[in-house]
Amino acid sequence: MTVRLAGVAIFMIAALYTWYGRDYTASFGDVLGPSVFPMIVGIPAMILAASLVVFPSGQVSWPPRDHMLRQVAALAILAGYAWLLLPLGFPLATFGLIAGLGIVLGGAPLKAVALGAVLAPGLWALFDQVLGLPLAVLGRWFG
């Protein structure tokens, strides 16, 4: 079932892709124009995706619910890091990332927090001080 659903999703994306690509009009001097290649890519993708809907292959076993929750939690931490990196600054955001992911991955909470507390400033020192990548110590919210 999952393969069929994925086939439907990819078919829709490929169809939208092909539909959008149709309208890119050629400027003069360019024989093929910008819309032919998307057609060459989009149409076979639609055919292959459709064939997966009709003749699916392979089984997909999804993880149990509690593991899915952990995956969602991990994604939330990753997204939170992306959005909070500039407001919080590198060391603080990275501390949250390492401690959070450590706990989600099954580490003991105290150990994960300790790891974050050691590594976040450590990585900042390594990248910013030693290797010369500029990474803000304090984010927008603090200065």
Binding site: L78, Y81, A82, L85, T94, L97, I98, A99, G100, L101, G102, I103, L105, G106, G107, K111, A112, L115, G116, L119, A120, L123, F127, L133, L135
Partner: peptide, 13 residues
């Protein structure tokens, strides 16, 4: 649990 957070942090950097 200790390795993958480091991988994530280095990827982000």
């Amino acid at each position: 649990w200790a390795l993958m957070p480091i991988v994530a942090a280095v990827s982000f950097v």
